[in-house]
Design a protein around this nucleic acid. Structure first.
Lengths: 99, 99
DNA sequence: TTCATTACTTTGAAACACAAAGTGCTTTTC
DNA sequence: GAAAAGCACTTTGTGTTTCAAAGTAATGAA
């Protein structure tokens, strides 16, 4: 693949993952339900995508407690932010080329 | 999913398909080998993606002859151009939001 | 105590991606 | 002019990914 297209990141091929990343790019921390609300996916589906992103260290998970309830929040890592920005930049190039 | 993300088109989740569409958006007609060269994929892989795009009527195939040799060219349809543009516009929105 | 809810995790089927092998031509080479 | 090579895809089979639904383990409410 030529130039910008080869800079696209396979991980961000998925709409849901793009959604997660852009939500986390703008919001410092979000929990499972925030993300579920933003993207309108089923739990299992969201959990799988979150795990994939976590495995690639694009997001990190903080498991904690609010009182006695578990409280899990997700946030973007530095590497994740860079990877996502690179991806979007490549897309921007593609868009520019088309005009 | 909220606004721009829900306007992303599942068909364009694939890098190879984005490559095909942007190549065809800029070039009136391309043949199998042109596309293969642009994107550096295997034949089978490219053929599968082309077929998917064709099934969605985002591209059209013209089978003809140059002399005695078959000559197949691919071009983008009106619907394909619109769908792809919509997809890119949605991405543009996402990019803007992040800045 | 029992039932409901929350916040995920696991499961299993279906869809998809991919490389390699195959097909049906035409064109070259001997 | 028969065999080999090349071209332009198509088919096949495997491995991966996606997804919804069912499951689980904890807390909270009745």
């Amino acid at each position: 693949m030529k130039d910008p297209i080869q800079h696209l990141n396979k991980i961000f091929d998925s709409r849901i993952r793009i959604g997660i990343m852009s939500a986390l790019a703008v919001n410092e921390k979000l929990n499972f339900n925030d993300l579920k609300g933003i993207m309108d996916v089923t739990d299992g589906n969201l959990a799988t995508h979150l795990k994939t992103l976590e495995e690639h260290e694009y997001i990190k998970v903080q498991k904690g407690f609010v009182g006695r309830k578990t409280n899990t929040t997700y946030s973007i890592t530095k590497a994740g932010h860079k990877a996502f920005t690179d991806h979007l930049n490549a897309l921007e190039e593609i868009i520019k080329k088309m005009k």
